[in-house]
Simulated scan of single mutants.
Amino acid sequence: MRMVGVRELKNQLSKYLQLVKQGETVVITEHEQVIAEIKKPSENMEDREKRVYSYLEEQSRIGKLVLAKRDRSQIDNIIKDRSARNQIPDWKEIHEDSRKDRT
């Protein structure tokens, strides 16, 4: 574990992020008080995404939020179609196509 002040972290961010990538925890201090720590995630992104979606579904079920009703497959199909034709995806066009249902 390394301790670093905010100013030093700001000036040498790449160095400290490299240490984090290697598995080290970086503790950030401000005026000799610990204010944060940076470390590698303890779970993989897939598990985290599942947990987030589960939370959002629960909040929707109890009425605290309304989930978007966008069809993600439409966007995936546009990207696959362009990839099959060896074209670079035009993200603006994809974005506009995905919002057609909002007019």
Rank of each mutant, 00 (worst) to 15 (best):
I35G: 01
D97V: 11
K69L: 00
R48C: 01
L9R: 02
R51G: 14
L19N: 03
I75Y: 09
R61V: 02
Q59G: 04
E46H: 13
R82A: 15
N44P: 15
Q59D: 03
L17Y: 06
K10R: 09
I38R: 05
E8G: 11
I35Y: 05
K69A: 02
R7L: 15
A36E: 07
G23V: 00
E43F: 06
E96Q: 00
G5A: 01
Y16W: 11
K64M: 03
D76E: 15
E37G: 03
R61A: 06
D47A: 14
V4H: 05
D90C: 11
N77H: 12
K100I: 05
E58M: 05
Q12I: 05
E37C: 04
N86I: 08
K64V: 01
T25F: 08
I79D: 07
R51D: 08
S54K: 12
N11T: 10
R7G: 05
R51A: 09
S54T: 07
K39F: 00
R82Y: 15
K40W: 00
V34N: 09
R72E: 14
A84H: 09
G63S: 08
I35H: 00
R70W: 07
K40A: 10
N77E: 14
V6K: 03
S83N: 08
R102P: 00
G23L: 03
S73Y: 06
S42R: 04
R85S: 06
E93F: 03
H31S: 08
G63Y: 05
R2N: 12
P89K: 13
K40F: 01
K50L: 08
R2V: 13
M3C: 12
A84Q: 13
K100M: 06
V66D: 14
D76F: 14
I62T: 12
E58R: 02
M1E: 06
I35D: 00
M1K: 13
A84E: 08
L13E: 12
N11A: 07
V4W: 08
K64T: 03
D71C: 13
E96F: 05
R7Q: 08
K50H: 12
S83I: 04
H95D: 08
K64W: 07
Y55L: 07
L17C: 05
I28V: 15
E32R: 04
R99T: 01
N11F: 06
V52D: 04
Q18N: 06
I62P: 10
L13I: 10
Q87L: 15
